[in-house]
């Protein structure tokens, strides 16, 4: 490693440090816990049956593909009636909620979300019998290097 390359490395690093955006005030793990409590009340939430599919390393937090799938027969007698997704560090803890029923056949929903920073995402599914199941994922968000000029 010669000195010139070292300096170029330093210059490149400076470029990165100068463009780091600073986000607005964010939700907290406590805010997320409160949002979850609003949905589940005092009912116990068990881990399992839910899978939360997110890229482990996110190249840009503006658009993060996410799929929640819940194991369920989706029959009149036994189905998933809602899926809720929460995050810990965006300005608000709620991401989305969907209402489902036997007509869906599969308890699977896909969308794309914004993540301001690396954080934990939680998905909670509610069964027709009133039970709650959950899954969580830790996501690492990298920040874009070359941003827009401020105009």
């Amino acid at each position: 490693m010669d000195r010139r390359r070292f300096l170029a490395g330093a210059a490149v690093a400076t470029m990165v440090t100068t463009v780091l955006p600073c986000g607005p005030a964010s939700a907290t793990p406590e805010a997320m816990a409160a949002a979850i409590a609003k949905v589940v009340g005092n009912a116990p939430v068990r881990e399992g049956r839910v899978s939360l599919d997110l890229p482990p390393l996110v190249e840009n937090g503006n658009t993060v593909p996410l799929v929640v799938s819940v194991e369920s027969p989706m029959t009149e007698a036994d189905y998933i009636k809602a899926i809720h997704v929460f995050n810990e560090k965006n300005p608000q803890p709620d991401v989305f909620s969907v209402r489902l029923g036997p007509r869906n056949g599969r308890a699977v929903v896909g969308t794309r979300i914004k993540l301001g920073d690396s954080q934990k995402i939680v998905a909670i599914a509610e069964t027709s019998g009133g039970q709650f199941w959950s899954a969580s994922a830790d996501v690492i968000v990298t920040l874009a290097a070359c941003l827009e000029e401020a105009t």
Binding site: N62, T63, V64, P65, V67, N87, N90, P91, Q92, D94, V95, F96, S97, V98, R99, L100, G101, P102, R103, N104, G105, R106, V108, V109, G110, T111, R112, I113, K114, L115
Partner: peptide, 23 residues
């Protein structure tokens, strides 16, 4: 007949994409 109902927040990405299933 209603088959799907999603409540979005500001954390849904621009140009929203949604996929779901139906019988």
């Amino acid at each position: 007949t209603g088959i799907f109902d999603m409540e979005m927040s500001p954390a849904i990405a621009a140009n929203p994409f949604v996929s779901f299933f139906a019988v």
